[in-house]
Amino acid sequence: MTTQNQTKNSIVRFLNINTSGQTGGRNLPLWRQLLLQLIAIAILASVMFPIMYVVTLSFSSKTTRPSSLELFPKEISFVAYQQVLDKPTGNPVTFIELLRNSFMLSMGVGMAALAIAVTAAYAFSRFKFAMREVLMVLVFIPLLMPAVGLSTPLYLLLNQVQVKECKDGATAIQPFTTCEDGSKGKLQFNLRDSLFGVGIAMTASALPFAVWNLKGYLDTIPRELEEAAAIDGADANQTFWQIVIPLAIPQLAVTFFLGFIGHWQEFVLTWLFLSQPKDYTLAMTLYNMTGQYANAIPWNRFAAMAVIVALPVAIVYIALQRNIVGGLTTGSVKG
């Protein structure tokens, strides 16, 4: 620790960084300004390096892999984007379907987690009751168990819900009804092999974060408002719906969006559960374009796909940046 401190110390002394951001102002000496600019530009270069690399690749029309380093586009060609939009993978699935699947999955999981979490977060934030600590630890259990750890039982559980068309034309909904003639019937729908089922499974891992993030924010809302409402004769439910929820809307939005991003790139459960190309998501497609499966994929197409997957999330994140960071820190900074 000491050596680390000393090196940091010397860095601070060397740069003579004014940590207060107060004095100095316009009379920051020129040599120091230039030195700091140099460092800032070096950091900027390192930040931009992979971004420029992938953007340049995506605008290239060459299907061969890059033979030398190019960080600025020599040409602006949308061939790769067009190819990705036309036929993203070898599988029979269109880009619009991939986008829709990803969008519905992240949206659904984000919304479901939010709706279920908000009342729980309120209970944990505002009430004192028996078993509070125990229940709270229980809610956080999925944080300790990565999605893959619960995948087998969830697979078996969801696999039991199937809709089948029997030989006599009737429809059986397992596990509630089975075909009367005892035949297995033709499989129409398997909850496990559907986006809906995967969404249910993903909600399990989305809940704890939503509860934690909302509780942290609710803790910061002054109780006086609720007390005043109670004096005015509002019962607990009215207080919750009419006072607390409206105040928490910014944080609800942030929690939803963080859930959305988290599951925009969900890979484990989708890859384990889904077998039909029509249900594939953008994240799964991106995996198909890299690593061991990628030998046949031109890199310009991969790059275009990477940009497409990243862009929607990046844009919303930048737009909501202030709220997200504020939300994350109010959720955590305490005591």
Binding site: P50, V309, A310
Partner: peptide, 11 residues
């Protein structure tokens, strides 16, 4: 921060 880690990893 705004680029999904999955994309970062593939890139």
């Amino acid at each position: 921060v705004v680029v999904p880690p999955l994309v970062v990893a593939t890139v």
